[in-house]
Write a protein that binds this DNA or RNA. Structure first.
Lengths: 198, 198
DNA sequence: AGATTTGTCTACCAAATGGTAGAGACGTGA
DNA sequence: TCACGTCTCTACCATTTGGTAGACAAATCT
């Protein structure tokens, strides 16, 4: 592969389309049109639609992992601050690249093979998060509960908030920069309150 | 409409398929096959795919509204208990009819016309929830924050938890009856902690 | 009984889908 | 110069899609 730029443009475009419109409703033609090439060029770089999906999931996982890893390693001993940093980190793509979390959330709609593919890429961070939560609970610095389920709840809250602006609009919210900042602020104090040791 | 049973069987089946696999990836043939009829019979009862989608959204909204309205009217003056009742109510379909919340969540993937259709059906309850949260905050019986965004956060947490068992599995959770009870328990105390007045 | 309405079907159709085969343009190394 | 690998394209193809037209049977009405 000498010229990788086409490949990457396809990945980026597919990520955006898959993430915003749903994997199942985006055709190879849609992607090719958006990139400005023919469908056959897409099939040259990725041997099938299914292969493209896996590649896009990898692409998304890469992008997400970088952000999260950095936040996990952020300084500060207090667990509430640390969780806060991760929440902010995961929330950032909501503004900069809304499709990213949207794609991760698509996982429920994919078939087993793609699910496992993505799981393999994310399981390490996930395990790390869960055991971190557990250890802080044991030290009494977080509200005690099941750390596994808590991690899931946190994920649902953050990703749901980020991927469903349309729902927020139904609640009367205004979709602009100020609105997003407000949501992030509320999200952070919501999570903080939910984690406060009792 | 003399014979309504076919119509209703189509609606029920379509709700399940749309909710679990995503609206965009389910064809009229899929639905017809699942019901045990031909696609043309589906098109006899619903004049187009788009019409069927709206009807299914109505069907889902009906089912959800009944549950939520009942919970809202539940006795008990303490707002934390009241919110708790609604959370439980919304969580019930997660067990009994997983597709229901899955379909509501699909709203982000639909086009404007269907979104507005569903919004029209749900806006009344939504408004009621928001103003209830606001009034209880003013009385100092809930943590003070933006009630609109809070309602959105609660929705995201509950619906995300309910619709993404696959994600929970990634976190190490076991998908069985005991697991679901545990998730509900954690979800309730999570929400309770997040709402506690400070 | 005869006419009409109701409900499901078979037979199509045009468009879109994922995918194959292979032509041709382009640069690179021998 | 010539062979070769790289990259994008045109030309197809079989299947599936949402949708139309109308046949046919059963129930209902007059």
């Amino acid at each position: 592969m000498v010229n990788g730029s086409t490949r990457i443009r396809i990945l980026d475009t597919a990520l955006d389309l898959f993430g915003t419109r749903g994997v199942g409703t985006v055709s190879l033609d849609d992607i090719a049109d958006a990139v400005g090439i023919r469908k056959q060029t897409v099939l040259y770089w990725f041997k099938s639609r299914s292969g493209l999906i896996d590649a896009v999931l990898d692409h998304a996982a890469d992008e997400l992992l970088v952000v999260v890893e950095a936040a996990i390693r952020s300084q500060g001993d207090e667990p509430l601050d640390r969780v806060d940093a991760v929440v902010c980190a995961v929330f950032r793509p909501v503004v900069r690249r809304p499709a990213l979390l949207g794609l991760i959330r698509e996982v429920t709609r994919l078939d087993e093979s793609h699910i496992n593919h993505l799981r393999g890429r994310l399981s390490a961070v996930v395990d790390r998060c869960v055991s971190y939560l557990r250890s802080e609970m044991e030290k009494g610095r977080l509200r005690t509960c099941d750390p596994m389920v808590l991690a899931g709840l946190l994920y649902s809250t953050v990703s749901g908030t980020g991927t469903e602006p349309i729902v927020l609009e139904t609640f009367g919210w205004e979709p602009n920069a100020a609105g997003l900042r407000q949501v992030r602020r509320e999200l952070r104090s919501f999570v903080r309150a939910a984690l406060q040791p009792n």
